[in-house]
C-alpha cells in the first residue's frame, strides 16, 4: 500500500497528513513536491489543505495547473484513488475531477470549529465502504471558502447517484450544524466511480487519541484499508 501526499508551496496541512498516515500504515507516505511530474505508483494520492499558491486568485486555481497535477490526472484516469481535503478539495474541483464549486462561507468569514458529519449511503467507494451509513464523525473544519455550490441538476445527480459522502448534521458543537451554507449540507462528495473524494473537514486533525478525538483516524484508516483491499 503506497500513499503519496502532494505538496504545494503554500500547503500547510501536509505534515499533519503525513503524521496521520504514518500512524495508520507505520510508514511515511511519499511526499511529492508540486514541481515533480511523477507519482511513483501510488495507490492513494492525497491533496492536503493549505493555501497552495496563496489563493489570492481563486482557491486552487493555480495549483490545478501545476506540473504534478498532470500525474494526478493520469492516476485518476487509471481509476486510482484520490482524496482532497479542504484546499485539496478545492483543487480537485478546479481540475474538474469532481463537479461543482466551493464559494465563500455564508457568514463571509473564516470558520474554525468542530462539526458533526453523517456518513451517507453511497455508491461503492473505498472512502465509505467500511463505514456504516448513518453513523456520525466529529471532525473540525477550518476554511473561508467551504460553501459547496452546484446547479440543481448536478446536485440532483450527486444525490441520485449516491455521490454525497458526508453531510453536516446537528451535534454538540455550538452554532448551526452546517457551518458554511453548503447546498444539501454537503461536507464531502465522490466522483461518479467512487474513486475520488473531496471533503472540507480535516480528518488529519482528529487523528490522535492523545488529543481526544480520533474520528478522523477512523475515516482515514478505513480509506487506507479499503484502497489496499
Amino acid at each position: 500500500m503506497r500513499v503519496a501526499v502532494v505538496i504545494f508551496p503554500g500547503s500547510n496541512c501536509d505534515r499533519d497528513m503525513m503524521v496521520a498516515i504514518e500512524r495508520i500504515t507505520g510508514r511515511r507516505p511519499q511526499m511529492v513536491w508540486h514541481k515533480e511530474t511523477g507519482l511513483d505508483a501510488a495507490d492513494l494520492v492525497i491533496v492536503p489543505g493549505g493555501f497552495s499558491f496563496g489563493d489570492y486568485l481563486r482557491c486552487g486555481a493555480l495549483a490545478a495547473r501545476s506540473p504534478i497535477m498532470e500525474a494526478v490526472l493520469d492516476h485518476a484516469s487509471r481509476g486510482g484513488a484520490i482524496l482532497g481535503v479542504c484546499n485539496g478539495f478545492q483543487i480537485l474541483l478546479e481540475t474538474g475531477l469532481l463537479p461543482g464549486t466551493l464559494v465563500k462561507n455564508k457568514g463571509l468569514k473564516f470558520i474554525c470549529r468542530s462539526t458533526n458529519l453523517q456518513v451517507q449511503e453511497t455508491i461503492s467507494s473505498p472512502f465509505t465502504s467500511g463505514l456504516e451509513a448513518g453513523s456520525q464523525l466529529a471532525i473540525p473544519v477550518a476554511h473561508n471558502e467551504g460553501n459547496y455550490f452546484a446547479d440543481e441538476d448536478t446536485l440532483a445527480s450527486l444525490r441520485d447517484n449516491g455521490q454525497i459522502a458526508l453531510t453536516y448534521v446537528n451535534g454538540p458543537a455550538f452554532g448551526p450544524s452546517n457551518p458554511n451554507g453548503s447546498a444539501h449540507d454537503i461536507a464531502g462528495i465522490l466522483s461518479p466511480n467512487g474513486r475520488i473524494m473531496g471533503m472540507m473537514p480535516h480528518p488529519e486533525r482528529a487523528a490522535d487519541p492523545d488529543i481526544g478525538n480520533s474520528d478522523g483516524l477512523i475515516f482515514l484508516k478505513n480509506a487506507v484499508e479499503m484502497v489496499a483491499a
Binding site: 500547510n12 496541512c13 505534515r15 499533519d16 503524521v19 496521520a20 468569514k109 473564516f110 470558520i111 474554525c112 470549529r113 473540525p140 477550518a142 455550538f174 452554532g175 480535516h202 488529519e204 486533525r205 487523528a207 490522535d208 488529543i211
Partner: peptide, 17 residues
C-alpha cells in the same frame, strides 16, 4: 470571544490541546 477566535485556525499543525 467565540466570534473572534473561530475566525482563527487553531488546529493546524495538529498539536493543539
Amino acid at each position: 470571544r467565540r466570534w473572534i477566535y473561530e475566525q482563527y485556525d487553531s488546529d493546524v499543525m495538529a498539536d493543539t490541546f
